Amino acid sequence: MSKPRSLDLPARTRAYRLGTPRQEFAVLDSRPGGQARGTVLLVPGYTGSKEDFLALLDPLADAGYRAVAVDGRGQFESPGPRRLSAYTPRALGGDVLAQVAALGEGPVHLVGHSFGGFVARSAARLDPTAFRSLTLLSSGPGRVGPEQRTKIRMLQAALPVLPPSWVWAVTQWLDGRDPVYVADPPEIVAFLGRRWFSTQPAQLIATGRQLRIEPDRTEGLARLPLPLHVAYGDGEKVWTVEELAHMARSIGARHTVLRGADHSPNVSHPKELTAALTEFWTTMCGAPGTE
C-alpha cells in the first residue's frame, strides 16, 4: 500500500462526496487557478485510498490540470456492500465510468496505481471514449509476484475469521519485519489504522483475490484505442521491472522509469511523476478536442 507522508490538504483541494447513480464516492478535487488543460482521475490501489495521491494534487494543478483522487467503493470513506460479488473488476470499472460522467468534463486522463491499474483498464475496456489516455502506475500485466501472493493469501484467510484488530496487528508486525521498514509518524500511523478499519473487508478479500489470480492482460491492453503510458520506479518489487518493461514494449506504451522510486512514486517522487505525466499528455494526447 501507499503511505502518504503528510495529510495536509493542499490549499486548492476540496474534499467532498461525488454523487453518481451508482453511489456516492469520497474524492479530493484540486483545480488550477486558470482554465484547466484537462482533468485527471486518480484511482488508488489495494488497501489504499485517495490520500495516496495527496502529494500529486498541487503539482498537477500547478501544471494546469484538474486532479481528482477517489476512494473506490468499499475503500476508506466510500461505502460498499458486504458481498464479494460487488467488487469484480467489471463492477469497479463501471464505477469509474460513473465518476467520469459525474465530473462532467468530457474525456479524462485516467491514472491507476497498482490494483487501481486493474480497475482503470477495466473501465477503459468498457468504454474507451470516456478517456483521453490511460496510465498504469506501478501496475503489472497480471497477478502479483509470489511474495505478495503469499501475504494476500494470509490476509484473505484471516479476514473472515479473526477480529479486524487482530488482522491489523499482524499486518503491522509483518511490515515491521521488512528490512527497509521505517517507522511512520504517529499521525500517519493513526490515519493508516482509520483507513484499515473503515475499508469494507469484502473489498479487501475480493480485490486481493484478483491480485492473486489476474491473468496477463497485455493483449487486451494493446487493443485499446487510447494513448497508453506505463510508469514505475526502478525499485519496484510488487511486479518485476522486467515484466513491466516487457508490457510497455508489447502494448506500444510510453515507458517511464522513475529513478530512486519504488512501488509508490506518487508519494516519493510527485514532481518527477507529474513531469512524466504532463509530458506524456502533451505529446501523445494533444489539446482537448484534437484527438
Rank of each mutant, 00 (worst) to 15 (best):
H113R: 13
L224W: 08
P179N: 07
P265I: 07
G252P: 07
Y16P: 00
H113M: 08
V119Y: 01
A287T: 14
G260F: 08
E279F: 02
R31M: 07
A206K: 03
S198M: 09
L224P: 03
L162D: 07
S268C: 04
V257L: 07
R73K: 05
L18V: 03
T88A: 01
E105W: 00
G104C: 06
T129V: 05
P185T: 13
G220D: 15
S114G: 10
T171D: 09
T13N: 04
L258I: 15
E219V: 11
G116F: 04
A130C: 13
W281P: 06
G106P: 07
G80A: 07
L134S: 09
D184C: 08
T39G: 09
E147T: 14
D175F: 00
E272Y: 01
L97V: 01
G80E: 04
F118M: 15
R259N: 01
Y46E: 08
P107L: 12
V96Y: 00
A130I: 02
Q203W: 13
F197P: 02
A55I: 00
Q23T: 10
G74Y: 04
S268V: 13
P186K: 10
V108M: 07
G48T: 03
P89T: 02
S2E: 10
H269W: 00
L258H: 02
L174K: 14
A36P: 05
A202M: 10
V230G: 04
L134C: 09
T150W: 06
F197Y: 13
P107M: 11
R153L: 12
A169C: 10
S122M: 04
P89N: 05
L228E: 05
K271V: 13
Q156N: 15
C285S: 01
V238P: 00
S165H: 07
G208N: 04
K3T: 14
E24K: 09
A248R: 03
R259D: 12
E147N: 12
L277Q: 06
T129W: 00
D184N: 14
Q156W: 03
S268Q: 13
D52E: 09
L211Q: 10
R22V: 14
E187D: 15
R83A: 14
S2A: 15
R12E: 14
Y46H: 14
T218K: 01
M247I: 11
E272C: 02
E242T: 12
A275C: 03
R177Q: 15
T135R: 07
A11Q: 14
H246S: 07
Q35R: 15
L84I: 12
P141L: 10
A98R: 00
R249A: 12
F53N: 06
V70C: 06
D58P: 01
Y232H: 13
E219N: 05
G112T: 08
A124D: 09
K50G: 04
P21V: 06
G106F: 03
Q156R: 15
A123Y: 12
L221P: 01
G145Y: 12
A124M: 14
H113E: 13
D127F: 01
G94K: 01
V43A: 08
L228K: 15
Q156M: 15
A202E: 13
